[in-house]
Design a protein around this nucleic acid. Sequence first.
DNA 1: GATAAGATACCTCCCGGTCGGTATATAGAG
DNA 2: CTCTATATACCGACCGGGAGGTATCTTATC
Lengths: 209, 209
Amino acid sequence: MVEKKSSRRRWPEGYDPAGTRRQLVDSALRLFEERGFDRTSLQQIVEDAELTKGAFYHHFQSKEDLLWQIQDEYLESQLKDARKIVESDAAPVEQIRALIFLSLEGVAKHRPHVAIFQQERRNLTGERLEDVTRKRDEVDALFNETITRAVDAGDLRDDISPRLITFGILGMCAWAFQWFNPRGTMKIKDVADQFSAMILDGLIVDSRN
Amino acid sequence: MVEKKSSRRRWPEGYDPAGTRRQLVDSALRLFEERGFDRTSLQQIVEDAELTKGAFYHHFQSKEDLLWQIQDEYLESQLKDARKIVESDAAPVEQIRALIFLSLEGVAKHRPHVAIFQQERRNLTGERLEDVTRKRDEVDALFNETITRAVDAGDLRDDISPRLITFGILGMCAWAFQWFNPRGTMKIKDVADQFSAMILDGLIVDSRN
DNA sequence: GATAAGATACCTCCCGGTCGGTATATAGAG
DNA sequence: CTCTATATACCGACCGGGAGGTATCTTATC
């Protein structure tokens, strides 16, 4: 995969401009996850990608711009998938299960993105911060709408506010990135199923069944 | 208070060393929460406390040392309270409710500590990181033990692993600091009660009762 | 030649940390 | 009580280094 190893000034035959950008993003993804945004210098990113600052500033406006693009590509992806679920004709409760799975799947499949989004968001400022926050809120709102619909339909108890349910579920899912090990024995689908069961059916053993 | 190597130190009565130190900690608490550890310079902390770098380095070994002390004072406090709950003679399920409340109460009452612990932990290194991680794990373990006891006693269903239940609950509670507004209408006790109900009794409305 | 893609040298800024000095309070000697 | 020695508490000028960012030049493609 890594074809470009030229530290000298030579252009390979089919050189790929988009590939260079990707390489920078991928290096940043790794380094930001490992060491955090502030503790990762431009120099490190550029060396990791076997490039130079010149290349970097040809593709990005600033270090913050890179951070924003990383977060944006994840949010856009999650937003798209979440919309697909909410716009489906599945029952509200099934949509909730699907959203839980989507969220956890994101954690499992895109760890660096999630880590960076959760931990480095505050390094964004101004418009970029607003943009990312807005998109995050949109995803949250999709959860909230679905949950509210489930409550209104009488499928979920109405003595707990939908807002609180939403935050509870989001928290459970978001927290997974703190402990879930993709290489462990537990598959993310199992986590999703058990979390869903826990929230929807409850934990208490009583005499009703 | 941790003093490992000391050479017969005694505090003169007339001075107020603890006050100065507190002022530095309090300034750091505010600034770290607002701007993050890396984006807060020593100069800012010291200016905010109306002191100088000289004073700072008289009380702390380094910037990281200050960060560690802040996290430590929170963890010690939570650990103490959590132990008290687990060592009580309340029923396991009631202990779980109490632990959930403790965790959420921490978020509400010590926002800056929680924010700094959750977001800036990675800025610690070596022994200090290990120490904080160990104490965090101890708190988590108290949750886990209690939950396991509840499952073993037959109070909670046994088809969801205690470990997963623990992480679910911890996530819900930890996430609260992302959205909970202490000045809002909702009291933290209500959040705790509703989260407990959600997890323990479940959300689904069925015909069995 | 125009333009894109990238390399290299360089700039300014400010960060964490140091270090010598000073002021204050207490303890002990006389 | 005063005088002095000493430890604490704090000040603030200073430093090396590395940070993000820029200017300018070179090379490849059309």
